[in-house]
Design a protein around this nucleic acid. Structure first.
Lengths: 320, 320
DNA sequence: CTGAAAGCGCTAACAC
DNA sequence: GTGTTAGCGCTTTCAG
């Protein structure tokens, strides 16, 4: 790897001039050319590490999400990467598994690698953004918000819950249960509130046991659905507040020998590669990728020096 | 962010000693303690950038894959991240979209960021590993191999094709078509060869048009399947050589009003979240995550100085 | 076992 | 417009 000094020597200029050429500063056309030629000859690539040490910042952002294998976060990640890439940024992927410890460790790495910024789907309200924030690196929260005054991009979860539940009503169902995520997680809580709002507005009873709190994964949805189906008066329809629980719930329905197309299953989120026909599951599509691009855009603006007060942008989910 | 000098001053030692403490070198217990205390008090985290500049290497590896939204690569990525994380490495995610240009650009970034290594699912045989290799950074190819003498982890694709086709035979099908990926891609080519081998061995005819080459995505599989179904003598079963084409093919089957459970569809790869019952699609599970952990393990060994000649490890796929 | 000092490659004042 | 120079924070000889 050639250095700026070797290029300078070959081009007959000073290192500073080489640096200027590669940073778009004013340099006379002749020297400009000489430098470029020399650089080409030596296959010179500026050493980003040295630059980073000097400038105290890099073209790398961290993306902290619970699990890249959740299709929702996969799409989100893709959106982030696309946008970052466009602006010459790289993104380092961090699976937190919703573990505050892992999250914290990654946040520290982000700081010590002087990453330019962080996009974070907080594992908990306790996410300690203090360290990274005090460092001056911008943070944007995605999918979930945090108590810290940082930018955020989220979905209108309440509306999503309402849309899904309404669709179930419109399909003729009345005895509608809800499989919600763990208590205390904002996104799922809001979706559940949407469900309850519709139920109340439509004067539908909510029998004992119709609200299930499950873990956020497929096994949680599966167990909850089995439980619901075993009730003395089982529901005729169910809303799950995220995609993975929907997967588990659907599995339980199928296993129970119930025709999923007759049972009313609605999920907030997408079940990728669904082939049941006619569409047996009501899905409220979350704009996952768009969430990612939006978050990345905001982060890049902050990195670019934008200093307006923290914004929260809310994206709408869409029934489909 | 406190520096090593501030810690040194507070602890009453030299910067070198602080460095030694944080690098596990021999330091007397008392100074050891003094340094740790001072570091804790100042919330000191070693600056990785400075260390990297000095040591000419980092704890970051690049992962270049076609598309994180392909569940196969999602799982692979998860495996890589898990393993890397275990050893204190971060991974930067790069979607090449099978575009050699993008691939090259990322490879250059990897070099100029002095990343410790690269895990690459090569977009093409032309992947220019020269630059990165000459830099001394290890590379391991994953899923697909390359002409360069680097480590590789792949699947026994021929066996996977054989297993899938055999399963179709065993289910009673004889007129079996194959939707293969683009020509020239090793993995898909081997799977297709597995199909042909079984067809020949079993003396099954391969009518005109029963071999379709499609792009690697769902729309490719969809179009190919429509084409097959429109044949004067359509096949009674079809093998697709990757997951996404399988998705498209299944969609086409369903759209054509054919019961997928009666039609014989086999795919090399996994269709995540399949709920058709009874299992309507033969799937040959690819050990995607394992591919990732294996690749990461090999890469880390190389980074650790392992200098044995390049190895290729072949993982088996499993029918399920 | 420990300290002093010399860089790693680059950028940003500061002079000219 | 261009060169000189002083670091960015760390690791690593080299002495002691």
């Amino acid at each position: 790897m050639a250095t700026i000094y070797e290029v300078a020597a070959l081009a007959g200029v000073s290192p500073a001039t080489v640096s200027r050429v590669f940073n778009g500063n004013t340099v006379s056309p002749e020297k400009q050319r000489a430098v470029r030629e020399a650089a080409a000859k030596l296959a010179f690539t500026p050493n980003k590490t040295a630059r980073r040490l000097r400038k105290q910042s890099s073209e790398v952002v961290a993306l902290l999400i619970p699990d890249i294998e959740n299709p929702f976060f996969t799409a989100l990640a893709r959106g982030v990467e696309d946008k970052a890439q466009e602006s010459g940024f790289s993104v380092v992927l961090c699976n937190t598994d919703d573990d505050p410890g892992k999250e914290l460790r990654y946040l520290q790495i982000a700081a010590s690698e002087q990453m330019a910024g962080v996009i974070l789907a907080p594992a908990s309200d306790e996410a300690d953004l203090g360290a990274i924030a005090s460092l001056g690196s911008p943070v944007v929260a995605v999918d979930r918000t945090t108590p810290y005054p940082v930018d955020a991009v989220k979905v209108d979860n309440r509306a999503a819950g309402i849309a899904a539940t309404t669709a179930l009503f419109d399909a003729g169902h009345r005895r509608i249960a809800c499989i919600a995520g763990p208590v205390g997680i904002e996104s799922t809580e809001d979706r559940f509130l949407g469900w309850r709002q519709v139920m109340t507005a439509r004067r539908a009873a909510i029998p004992e046991g119709y609200l299930q709190h499950a873990n956020f994964r497929a096994d949680g949805g599966h167990a909850a659905m089995r439980h619901l189906l075993a009730l003395p008066e089982p529901p005729e329809a169910v809303l799950t507040t995220n995609n993975l629980m929907g997967v588990g719930a659907l599995q339980a329905v199928v296993e129970a020998g119930v025709d999923p197309a007759r049972f009313g299953l609605a999920v907030v989120g997408e079940l990728p590669f669904m082939f049941l026909t006619p569409p047996a599951v009501v899905q409220v599509r979350l704009p996952a990728r768009h969430l990612g691009t939006t978050a990345a855009t905001m982060l890049l603006e902050r990195i670019g020096g934008d200093a307006q007060p923290p914004r929260t942008v809310v994206l709408r989910a869409e029934l489909a």
